[in-house]
């Protein structure tokens, strides 16, 4: 295990939005020097408030945004040098799911067509085979295969988000980046999706990178948390340690914001 290179290695990553991209506005430094490693099979959460740079970092890792300086290595390959078929392969292996992924589903397509579309684009299997795979994927995220003909508006918010996850899983990725993918969902649905993600991880050895403002939710999902503040990672550590011995003042502020709640008694043993 020690010999294997990390999935992602990031050095001195910065990202500035100059006056040209945001017309007239002063230059904004979204990332001010990020060093980060993401090991295979881990669950890391980037936690920070809006404007802390967490989403920009996620976009740079998914190569949807060009860093201003610094390097991002994916399995030892520089992201900037990926071209052609190797870039396509990278896009398959790293999938990004956003808060609005569920609302961005094509309303005219059926659930099965939404899930099998990436397979069709990649030219995998014939029509029958793709349909079969789509139904399997739907089942695996807890949507009955009998619903294959339903369209997004006939599904609930949680079901749509699960459909977006099924679609991302269709190309058998190795890393899922989930940027506020749970925001706006009910607690019981968040718990359902969290459980689903952990099952999938156990089955396929997936790596997760979560991005969120909600530290208590991330405590539920991730093993490790990196706290972001003003474009920097100010603290990184095991979830339990972050809560018990926060070092950075901003981490303490985030923890203080988690409303305390009396613990419910254990359910009666059945």
């Amino acid at each position: 295990m020690e010999a294997e290179p990390p999935l992602f290695r990031v050095w001195g990553l910065t990202k500035r939005y100059s006056g040209r991209e945001r017309r007239g506005a002063p230059t904004v430094e979204a990332l001010a020097g990020i060093d980060l490693e993401v090991t295979r099979g881990s669950d890391l959460a980037l936690v920070g408030q809006s404007g802390s740079g967490k989403s920009t970092l996620a976009r740079c890792l998914a190569r949807l945004d060009e860093p201003t300086s610094g390097r991002v290595l994916f399995e030892g390959m520089d992201l900037r040098e990926l071209r052609g078929p190797r870039l396509l392969r990278f896009r398959e292996r790293v999938q990004l799911i956003l808060q609005d992924s569920a609302t961005a589903l094509d309303p005219r397509l059926t659930a099965a067509a939404i899930v099998s579309e990436p397979l069709e684009v990649l030219g995998r299997g014939d029509r029958r085979e793709r349909g079969r795979q789509a139904r399997e994927l739907m089942e695996s995220v807890g949507i009955p295969a009998a619903w294959a003909a339903r369209r997004p508006f006939e599904l609930s918010g949680g079901q749509r988000q699960r459909l977006a996850i099924a679609r991302a899983l269709a190309v058998q990725p190795e890393l899922l980046i989930l940027d506020e993918a749970f925001a706006g969902l009910d607690a019981s649905i968040q718990a359902q999706i969290a459980t689903l993600l952990q099952e999938l991880q156990a089955r396929h050895g997936l790596t997760y990178l979560y991005v969120s403002h909600d530290l208590s939710l991330m405590a539920l999902l991730a093993d490790e948390v990196a706290i972001m503040f003003e474009g920097r990672i100010v603290e990184r550590g095991d979830v339990g340690r972050i809560f018990t011995e926060p070092r950075h003042p901003h981490t303490r502020a985030l923890i203080a914001a988690v409303a305390s709640l009396p613990a419910p008694s254990a359910p009666p043993a059945s």
Binding site: S216, L217, P267
Partner: peptide, 20 residues
């Protein structure tokens, strides 16, 4: 039980994840 809450020190993740 589905509600995320601060973990107790040293708890493993399997115990934290609620049964939805």
């Amino acid at each position: 039980q589905a509600l995320p809450r601060a973990p107790e020190p040293g708890s493993s993740r399997e115990r934290r994840v609620p049964s939805p």
